[in-house]
Write a protein that binds this DNA or RNA. Structure first.
Length: 352
DNA sequence: GACACGTGGTT
DNA sequence: TAACCAAGTGT
């Protein structure tokens, strides 16, 4: 888009945002720490979902120092159910780095911000523009869609050519007054008007400058990247209870055995013993490993879909007297305060 | 550069 | 209902 057009379009967009911006909690603050939290929570996650976590998380960890001083267990417990748990671990590392390197203040310097764990190009730009009013660009899924349509960018999303064009254009949009407002307005437009399907072009403040609309190609843009179908994986889970009905939970740590649960998946979270595989033999191994006795009952099935995997979990039941090692016996109805993935809750619910 | 990393809502 | 997708990052 030409600079003169962009200038008029920006003014129009900012005016539109002034009228139509949703009143979201992270828009009521200029605290860079609070904005950082919101940006990390919002990664690949819907606003409505984040609304259930944001205030609670900030109340528990109101400052950089409060979060830096917390245990990873406590951080993950407040993140429980939000998904992409590595975000929480990296955020925790990030605030610790802010304490260690920057005296507990989120750095205004762009390079210093970008160097923090869990702070990539997008998050650095979001904090910089929104909290510090610095002319730094952002490109998230919304901005990518808006700019792809506006400028008729035909390269598939995620390709180097597309990234280059989008960040260049986003830089031009942000290189003026009120970059934080401009950036948020671009995202808000993508979230509420320039939507993936059924965009409301009639209500769009930028329709006069939209190349896709002019060419009647709004539905063709942006060009999606090709995705592979999730692989189906069989998993055996063991719900072993003591006489009080408490179930054995073990902390999920990376190991060198590889396989589905040998990597970063659910790392640091508590779960019932699980192992890739199928059949009663695998269940018996799991039970033996943890000092439990396997029940005769047929396993229940739980389907849980991740981004790249479709998990078919067969939930076996067993009995146990005492937890070994780092295991703990936990009341399945009192999981608050524990970092637990939704999969674990589904597995426990299937075996009640 | 492709892939791993969660979950829930929408179509 | 299967597919898609939502304010990405790290390896």
């Amino acid at each position: 888009m030409k600079a003169a057009d962009r200038s008029r379009a920006r003014a129009k967009l900012v005016a539109w945002f002034g009228e139509h911006a949703r009143a979201l909690p992270w828009r009521q603050t200029s605290d860079p720490y609070a904005i950082w939290i919101s940006e990390v929570m919002l990664q690949q996650t819907r606003v409505e979902t984040v609304l259930r976590y944001y205030d609670r998380f900030l109340a528990r960890f109101p400052t950089v120092r409060a979060l830096a001083d917390a245990s990873e267990d406590d951080v993950l417990s407040m993140w429980s159910g939000l998904g992409y748990y590595r975000r929480a671990r990296l955020l925790h590392e990030g605030v610790k780095a802010v304490v260690a390197r920057h005296g507990g203040r989120v750095p205004e310097d762009a390079e210093a911000r970008r160097a923090l764990p869990g702070v990539g190009r997008y998050t650095a730009g979001a904090i910089g523009s929104i909290a510090f009013d610095r002319p730094e660009p952002i490109v998230d899924g919304n901005v990518a869609r808006v700019l792809s349509r506006l400028d008729v960018i035909e390269h598939a999303i995620g390709t180097p050519a597309s990234e280059k064009a989008l960040w260049a254009e986003a830089s031009a949009w942000a290189a003026h007054d009120a970059p934080g407002t401009v950036n948020q307005a671009l995202m808000e437009l993508g979230a509420t008007v320039c939507t993936p399907t059924s965009p409301r072009c009639d209500a769009c403040p930028l329709r006069a400058w939209c190349g896709a609309r002019r060419a009647d190609r709004v539905d063709e843009l942006p060009v999606p990247r090709v995705k592979k179908a999730p692989k189906e994986v069989s998993v055996v889970a063991l719900v072993a209870r003591d006489r009080a009905g408490h179930a054995l939970l073990v902390k999920h740590e990376a190991n060198d055995e590889g396989g589905l649960f040998g990597g970063d998946l659910f790392k640091g979270l508590w779960s019932v013993p699980m192992q890739e595989g199928e059949g009663r033999g695998v269940a018996r191994e799991l039970a033996e490993l943890h000092g439990a006795a396997l029940d005769l009952a047929e396993p229940r099935q739980v389907i849980h879909v991740l981004t790249h995997r479709r998990l078919r979990v067969l939930v076996h039941q067993g009995r146990i007297a005492k937890a070994r090692g780092t295991g703990r016996l936990v009341d399945p109805d009192a999981l608050d305060g524990l970092g637990v993935a939704t999969l674990t809750k589904k597995v426990l619910a299937s075996a009640r």
